[in-house]
Design a protein around this nucleic acid. Sequence first.
DNA 1: AATCGATGTGAGTCCGGTCTCAATCCTAGG
DNA 2: CCTAGGATTGAGACCGGACTCACATCGATT
Lengths: 364, 364
Amino acid sequence: MSTDGSRRRDVTVADVAKAAQVSKAQAARALGNYGAVSDDVRERVLAAAEELEYRPNELARSMNTGKSNTIGVVVGDIENPHFGLATRGITDTAKKSGYNVILINTDEEQAAEVDAIRVLLDKRVDGLIVAPASSVETAHLRQVRESGRPLVLLDRAAEGLDAETFAVDMGGISYESTKHLIAAGHRRIAFVSTVRTNAPYAAGMKLDSSQISDRLDGIHRAFDEAGLPQPTDLVRLNAGDADSIMRITRELLHGTDPATAIIASDGLIALSVVEAVQNLGLSIPEDVSFLMYDDFAWTRLTTPPLTVIAQPVYDMGMAAASALIRQIEGRKPSSPVPELVASLIQRGSVGAPKNADALSQAGS
Amino acid sequence: MSTDGSRRRDVTVADVAKAAQVSKAQAARALGNYGAVSDDVRERVLAAAEELEYRPNELARSMNTGKSNTIGVVVGDIENPHFGLATRGITDTAKKSGYNVILINTDEEQAAEVDAIRVLLDKRVDGLIVAPASSVETAHLRQVRESGRPLVLLDRAAEGLDAETFAVDMGGISYESTKHLIAAGHRRIAFVSTVRTNAPYAAGMKLDSSQISDRLDGIHRAFDEAGLPQPTDLVRLNAGDADSIMRITRELLHGTDPATAIIASDGLIALSVVEAVQNLGLSIPEDVSFLMYDDFAWTRLTTPPLTVIAQPVYDMGMAAASALIRQIEGRKPSSPVPELVASLIQRGSVGAPKNADALSQAGS
DNA sequence: AATCGATGTGAGTCCGGTCTCAATCCTAGG
DNA sequence: CCTAGGATTGAGACCGGACTCACATCGATT
């Protein structure tokens, strides 16, 4: 056996140098492929390295090159396929350029995010991709900029931070989708999101998430333009676990003047809302129309298939990673920034509201 | 402004020491919270550190402690919610013990996996969690053991490697599920998996994945026990992309003596199989019964809801991470290893085969 | 008052690479 | 045959912490 299972200490350049009978400097040059090395020396060194199964210590290398070839990625929840796919886009792109990814999950908690960023900075990552939990509290993100390390945002913008941000135009697609619902006859459109707030939603309220703000703005604009009363009372935030989403769904559908359409802010919420609707014995779209963000494969399998707002999530991850790497390597933005557009994919979950006739009669 | 955006060089212990008018050694002790330091010195050092916004360089620290507080995780595909959830279990557990996670995606490719492990070893991770793409080619995994670094396997076993493995008893649950299908009257049960092989499946064939082998063994055992002919011709491997899965599904349902039940080996396959069945204008379970691995939330939303084999994926991730960390920290297995059991969750996608009566008459 | 163990403290080494610098080796030009 | 200038080479500094070791300091013991 050439390998000794009990060996512990790693083989270093010095070991290789000794075995190859050259100086440490020469061995390092041959191994690192830099500087001038004669063929003779190179061969001896490489042979010795092979023989000893030498592997460079990337930690040591990083320490004095100042580059770790690692990027930090901070997301709210990888379990959420939205981030799963984005992460895939990031890691694929990173790998292509020789970067690795340290992934940290924050559970959408601000404190965890602050911590995550500190840790990544301490680990001397070359750059960061963050999907900020809050678009408002951005002190920790500003610290990243001050440390001089590149930062790119994913999914959500951050106030007072001029970092490149990769997200779709939420306001626009939200506006269009709402118009679609309004055109179908809906006046009572509910919006359910996990965003945490201290108080129930009120118009013009300051939200933590730029993404959700933009979506609400889009809805607002569509209603405004149509000259219809804003369904502000149907905006439900703080939809955390499955139970609370189910409760919210029941409330939305059971009050006086109930919702006739529900927009789910992400895939996880969508699952619980649809399940709640089914449990209530109601059907989509006859009793209530349904629209959700993100086009997951399973949305085609429900009866009826769900109308969704598709986001180029994988591409967003890719774009974020390549922009970050470009910044890290100090290159100028060469390729035109790829357009990241969301689109409404109409399937079967949006129909006319149940009492459309009654309503339009009352309206006329 | 106390911070200078243009500053580049990091603040080091030496800088702090100078500012606090003490030796580097004392500053390091105060900051690292080790050794003996007088209150006076400690205060001065901490104040100086605060003032200069000192942040330790974890790279440097790792270099001479030999610990990086980082674990490497190698999975086939994070985009797959199965791994997404497992990763969540891993990162949650790791974070609790102060470890970070470097995640590498292999696309289930052996070469990528070999590469990933080399990179992680070079980066001096403290330990590795791998969901091996192949249970057979395990040379690279053996190298991990030889490097002296802890290794834990997830989901799949590896031949000739005594690493702790966290996976459910696939043979058992497969056997039971098959018995369930047989009891419902099925004789023609298909099994669809992504596992790559060079040739079409034949009984007793050596597979790359222990997991799939075990499942096939379970099916085999159930048929054997029931004294029924093995539906070997209905085992379909190499089900890669959506298109090939759709094609396979069509073949399974259209030949002479078609399948009356299909088992999908994972969630991604399931999506395409169900979609293909729907596209064929067939319904579940009237025309064909359906069973899949992994209990994702969306399986409750289809019509009918799908019968699934639930695996404690999050727990597997958790267990793998805590076992790894235990090994890293050289502790003995104190807590009893948590039982990881899969279970059959019966919902609506398994029924009697269409021509059950005809068959039983023919049989009698 | 002499002694002893328990802190405190600073100089300097080490981890495993990269990289600078001065010395040495060669080879072509004169 | 001699020399300028590029190719090679080795010694050693350095990255930023952790840690060893020798040398104080100081209250407590006898």
